[in-house]
Design a protein around this nucleic acid. Structure first.
Length: 212
DNA sequence: CGCCAGGGCCATA
DNA sequence: TATGGCCATGGC
């Protein structure tokens, strides 16, 4: 199955999932992208709620490290994530916490800058580029690899090859990338992970194996 | 009770 | 460059 065909199947099943990343503003997306690393979103939500609506970049910079750890504790890995949030926010400060300034940087260059921040790996970088800054950088995650392995859709076995496969198969459109990744995660949670043997799965007929 | 979630860092070979 | 150990909480 091709990447385009998979999109059509999932899109037909789940419709439009726009505004799927829950956040009040771009900075909250950035924070959420760090907090959700290998962590369930229910935990992330509890951590975000601890800020009680006051989640400004300046506050994260001003907050003593130990207090920040306490606030994000429900999200797990709080010792490292507190440092990561400081690092990412310090990077953001170079652009006056201004998304418009950031979005003017060439995409490849911007991605390299993000990857240079401690705590920001490929998926986190792409999530920030796409969901915080609205730039067309396709997000690969564990769900993407597993679903494509099952059907199969040929995307290679690592992050770089998978990202390239998606971006070369689709128009370079942030709205499309946003929607596609949302579809993959939604589908994974609703079927590929939850239902044994893919029972009731809309694309079940395409899957070669349910044990991936 | 054990498993694992929308990863990434670091040490090792 | 490619693995493997480690990080930590809450839901189930």
């Amino acid at each position: 199955m091709t990447i385009t065909q998979l999109y059509d199947e999932l899109s037909a099943c789940y419709g439009n999932l726009d505004k799927w990343w829950p956040a009040r503003d771009p900075y909250e997306v950035m924070v959420g992208a760090i907090l959700t690393q290998n962590t369930a979103w229910t935990n992330v939500r509890q951590a975000l709620e601890n800020f009680e609506g006051d989640l400004s970049p300046q506050r994260i910079l001003d907050l003593p490290l130990e207090e920040l750890k306490l606030l994000i504790k429900p999200a797990g890995f709080f010792n490292q994530k507190a440092v990561y949030l400081k690092e990412l926010t310090t990077w953001f400060a170079k652009y006056d916490f201004d998304v418009q300034q950031v979005a003017r940087i060439p995409l490849d260059e911007l991605r390299q800058e993000l990857l240079a921040v401690k705590g920001v790996g490929p998926e986190t970088a792409d999530s920030i580029l796409l969901y915080a800054f609205g730039l067309p950088s396709f997000v690969i995650d564990a769900y993407t690899m597993r679903i494509c392995g099952r059907i199969p859709v040929e995307i290679g076995s690592n992050y770089k090859s998978a990202k390239k496969a998606f971006e070369n198969s689709l128009p370079l459109d942030a709205t499309l990338f946003n929607h596609y990744h949302a579809l993959i995660v939604t589908h994974a949670k609703r079927h590929c992970l939850k239902k044994p043997n893919c029972s009731g799965c809309p694309v079940r007929k395409h899957c070669v194996s349910a044990s991936i």
